[in-house]
């Protein structure tokens, strides 16, 4: 039982991170029907900027918490600019092109960003400065750290904030209107370009937050870290129903739990036939089964009523 609880905690933490990244995919997809494959790279760059800035500040003798905040602020600003720049340079000129074109561009941007990061930060793994104090807890035989608690709490708060933004503010309403019918939203006075840019900027900021969580959790970062994280988060978004915010959140957490429980129990369930290296397969099998019965994902709207 303590092991089961431990796996649930593992999954919840991992899932919170997936959920935050998945929100970035789903926001952009919801508004402009584009899968921004470069989102994982934005997360990566945010993490690396934090390392550089916070690392520099700590070396300069700043208190760790303050350096962390400075790193976070710098990373969020850089990545908001990056998200905005991506949209402005890579996607806006292709707004009316066939859907495949911006998709290919997105993959291209992802490769470009990876290589730029490799040039700036090098090929080696970087260690993330320990921004949070190391405190361990034990509960019913399960161990967890303060970092894990903070990750889950910050994710929940951030997601709550995002839901408030989208469902309770004017900008949020404009975003939803734009996602449903951009031409008419424009007639109502909504500047579509600004709303789309806002989606990119907010999504990027969420991504940075997720990246910093990954950094403080694993204490390492690498120029290729965004790829797998992005892929998993994208899967989570599809699992929950891409374009749907609640879907992305639940999809992320679900994926984290499936992975943890899959890795923990798949060997025992199959009598050792499948080992823990099949944990990804386990996650994708769940995805396939869900999509078989609900092609638009767990919370996805039917595509028919997209105006």
């Amino acid at each position: 039982m303590d092991i089961f609880l431990q796996q649930i905690i593992n999954g919840l933490v991992q899932g919170s991170i997936y959920a935050l990244v998945a929100l970035g995919y789903t926001m952009v997809y919801g508004i402009m029907g584009l899968i921004n494959f470069a989102h994982g790279e934005v997360v990566m760059i945010g993490t690396l900027v934090t390392i550089s800035v916070a690392g520099f500040m700590i070396k300069a003798g700043m208190p760790v918490m303050l350096a962390g905040m400075a790193g976070l602020t710098a990373a969020v600003l850089v990545c908001m600019a990056l998200g905005w720049g991506l949209e402005r340079i890579a996607y806006r000129p292709l707004r009316n092109a066939p859907r495949l074109t911006p998709l290919i561009t997105a993959i291209g941007m992802s490769i470009v960003l990876q290589n730029v990061a490799m040039i700036i930060w090098g090929r080696n793994y970087l260690t993330f400065p320990p921004l949070l104090p190391k405190v361990d807890f034990e509960f019913a035989g399960a161990n967890f750290t303060a970092v894990q608690v903070i990750i889950v709490a910050v994710s929940a708060l951030t997601m709550g904030g995002l839901l408030f933004l989208v469902y309770r503010t004017k900008l949020g309403m404009a975003m939803r209107a734009t996602s449903q019918n951009p031409a008419v939203a424009s007639l109502m006075g909504v500047n579509i370009n600004r709303v789309i840019a806002a989606a990119f900027i907010i999504g990027s900021a969420l991504g940075v937050l997720a990246g910093i969580m990954v950094g403080t959790y694993y204490e390492i970062a690498h120029y290729q870290m965004g790829f797998m994280l992005g892929l998993k988060a994208f899967t989570a978004a599809v699992l929950g129903g891409i374009g749907n915010l609640a879907g992305a959140m639940l999809g992320g957490i679900l994926l984290g739990l499936i992975e943890a429980l899959g890795a923990g129990y798949i060997g025992d369930l199959t009598g050792g036939f499948l080992g823990s290296h099949y944990q990804d397969i386990f996650a994708f099998m769940v995805l396939i089964v869900v999509l078989m019965f609900k092609p638009s994902g767990l919370f996805g709207e039917k595509t028919g009523d997209r105006a």
């Binding site: 092991i3 694993y218 429980l261 890795a263 923990g264 290296h277």
Partner: peptide, 18 residues
Amino acid sequence: EYTNDKATDFKAILTKIK
């Protein structure tokens, strides 16, 4: 247990090992 040469999270397999 198994992982891969790109992984960063080992908590699930380590929990099982625990």
